[in-house]
Each structure stands twice: as C-alpha cells, then as structure tokens.
Amino acid sequence: MYRARMVFDIARAGGAPIRNGQFKLDDRDLKILSILQHEGRIPKATLAERVNLTPTPCWERLKRLEDAGIIESYGARISLRALGPISVIFVEIELQSHQVEDFARFEKAIADIPEIVECWAVGGGIDYMLKVMTRDLESYQKLIEELLTAKIGVNRYYSYVVTMPVKDTPLPVGIIAEQG
C-alpha cells in the first residue's frame, strides 16, 4: 500500500531536512500520517506500536514531520448533524477585473468571515470556489448581499446548496506517495 518514500518539494517542506531540494518520507512516515488523520488523539506509545517502532524513534519522526510543516495541526472532526441544522453551500465567484490587486482585495475581505470555511482560487471559468456554512439559507443570502455591497469586485456568483454529504475523507496519503 505504501511506497518506500514520498517526496515533497522545498516549498512544502517548510525548512525540514532536505536532500537535493526534496524532503524524503519513508513507509513509516506515511503510516504515521495516515494513522494520525484518522486518530489524531492516539497515544504516542500506541502510535509507535502501530508503526512498529519504539517510542523515542517514533516521537523523533513525529517531531520531524511537525517541524517540516507536513503535519500542520491536530483537530477534531465535528458532526454537523449533532449540532443541529446547518446549511452548506458551495459558491463559485467570478471577479469583475483580474488584476493582482483585485484578487488581493477579495481575499483580504473574505479572510475574516467565519461562515466562509474554505476558499480556493481556481482556474477555468470562475475565479474562486467557496465553501460556506450558515445556520440557514436566509443567513446565507444575507452573507451574499454583504459580499455584493462590499465593493470587493464580485461580478457574478453561483450557489450550490448541499442536500446531503456523500464523501468526506482524510488525504489519500498512500496515493500521494505513489506520485513521488
């Protein structure tokens, strides 16, 4: 399932041990990453056992992955159903103008809006894809109206209301490793 190593470029390695411009990950590093995506609170001793290492070498690998910026943070997966009704909407955004300052203005404006939980700059017919989470569709409409009146360059938007989650999984570490 896991290849012998995985290669990350310098930009993604974040100052980690780099050989010939690349950060090397072996099978155990990949297994650590895979386990942590599913079980972020796993005790270090249990993690070491699962990857067939003693605790100290496992801890050293974990620390190296953290220092390299490959492990960005630890968190909990929260059940939206348990919190009550939540509307999830994907929004395509097209800007009026495509100068560097136009993109910067838009990105700065949405950075602190908590309902916009993800924003991706994309190529193709649109400029951005947003994932928005609000209590209901009325709250979503108010948010859109605020974006349109904020004069941040939104030319057009398309909304896609999520009716049912189908798949939401951690990163496919094993598949990514095959590309190295």
Rank of each mutant, 00 (worst) to 15 (best):
Ser159Gln: 11
Val7Cys: 08
Trp120Asp: 14
Ala111Asp: 07
Pro170His: 07
Asp27His: 07
Gln141Lys: 12
Lys167Ser: 00
Gly14His: 14
Gln22Met: 05
Lys24Cys: 05
Leu130His: 06
Met133Trp: 03
Ala13Gln: 06
Lys151Phe: 14
Glu101Ile: 06
Arg135His: 10
Phe8Glu: 00
Ala13Ser: 15
Pro57Arg: 04
Lys44Trp: 13
Arg81Phe: 15
Leu47Ile: 02
Leu65Ala: 02
Asn20Leu: 11
Tyr128Arg: 03
Glu101Gly: 01
Leu33Ser: 04
Ser73Ala: 15
Pro57Val: 05
Ser34Ala: 13
Pro17Ser: 07
Trp120Met: 12
Tyr74Gly: 00
Asp26Thr: 06
Arg81Val: 15
Trp120Lys: 14
Gln22Trp: 00
Thr163Arg: 13
Ser34Trp: 08
Ala13Thr: 14
Trp120Asn: 13
Thr134Gln: 08
Lys44Ile: 13
Glu60Leu: 08
Phe103Asp: 01
Ala111Val: 03
Pro85Ile: 15
Ala4Glu: 12
Gly124Met: 07
Ile35Cys: 01
Phe106Gln: 01
Leu95Asn: 07
Glu107Thr: 07
Asp102Phe: 00
Leu80Ile: 13
Ile71Val: 06
Val88Cys: 12
Lys31Thr: 00
Ile35Thr: 01
Arg3Cys: 00
Asp168Leu: 10
Glu101Lys: 10
Val154Ile: 15
Leu47Thr: 02
Ile32His: 03
Ala111His: 11
Glu146Tyr: 13
Gly180His: 14
Ile176Gly: 02
Tyr158Cys: 04
Trp120Ser: 14
Gln99Leu: 08
Gln22His: 02
Leu30Ile: 04
Leu25Pro: 01
Ala121Trp: 07
Met1Pro: 07
Ser97Gly: 02
Met164Ile: 05
Glu138Asn: 11
Tyr158Ala: 12
Thr46Gln: 11
Ile126His: 05
